[in-house]
């Protein structure tokens, strides 16, 4: 199980997360929704260990192991993986090279045998095809010149390749066309079926209709102000965040 308890996070000396708690069991899909700037990406970055996001209080644990202050590479090796809202470009580093390096590092830490280069290439080609990307993407530089949708697909491919225990997925559905959205949703479902926890950050109900999430959490001003079933998404759409916020905080 993945658990965060009373997590408080500062960015640039500003208190952004004011104490967030979550429990995600294997195979569960949790969704975090909330207005712009409410701290959703901050939560994602803090969980993944981004050094710009300082955890001042609280706890992050996976399978009982405390990872609150672990290095980001260590967290990934343990199974915390993040799909970025804004993936970074790495000029001159091919998708193949990047993913293979990550695969090897993770296998080494988990003490399992990595795929050999031929197997790896084949597996990557298949995965690219599954997400509707041409095999030539393998040799392109990481995210350089990728369209918005292509970047998101590559984030999903990375997650599925690197075998997370808990996948944090930040606004993967923004700017996707309908077909891409279905493919991505399929990828997320696949993760959950495989017994992985999913924390999905989104603004739109659209992706949820494919996913049937177990829980929806509403984040406002660095706090989870309400949690509920997937029906909460409908309520949010009708009422907007303001009313939800007022109702719970009063």
């Amino acid at each position: 199980m993945f658990q965060i308890k009373n997590l408080k996070v500062d960015v640039n000396e500003k208190h952004i997360l004011q104490g967030v708690s979550l429990k995600i069991k294997p195979g569960e899909i949790h969704v975090v929704m909330g207005p712009n700037g409410s701290g959703k990406s901050t939560l994602a970055n803090a969980i993944a260990g981004n050094p710009k996001y300082k955890t001042t209080d609280g706890k992050i644990a996976l399978g009982g192991e405390d990872l609150t202050h672990a290095r980001p590479d260590h967290r990934a090796q343990k199974g915390i993986l993040l799909a970025f809202q804004y993936p970074k470009e790495i000029p001159g580093v091919s998708v193949l090279n990047f993913l293979q390096t990550a695969h090897k590092a993770i296998c080494k830490a988990r003490k399992i045998a990595p795929m050999n280069p031929i197997e790896f290439r084949k597996a990557l080609r298949e995965r690219l095809a599954k997400f509707g990307l041409d095999a030539t993407f393998m040799n392109r530089s990481m995210n350089e010149g990728f369209s918005g949708g292509e970047k998101k697909k590559l984030e999903m491919i990375q997650l599925s390749f690197l075998e997370p225990k808990i996948a944090i997925i930040d606004e993967i559905d923004s700017g996707l066309d309908i077909d891409a959205l279905k493919v991505i949703a399929g990828g997320i479902k696949f993760l959950a079926y495989g017994g992985r926890g999913v924390l999905l950050i989104t603004h739109y109900k659209r992706i949820l209709q494919y996913l049937k999430p177990d829980f929806i959490h509403v984040m406002v001003c660095g706090r989870i102000v309400k949690s509920g079933s997937h029906k909460l998404a409908d309520e949010l759409e009708r009422k907007g965040y303001k009313n939800i916020h007022h109702k719970t905080s009063s």
Partner: peptide, 19 residues
Amino acid sequence: QLFYCMSRGIGKDEATGMI
């Protein structure tokens, strides 16, 4: 960039070398 690489399980030195 460094965080992006590390968030994939790649150690800091290796990530630096790769960049």
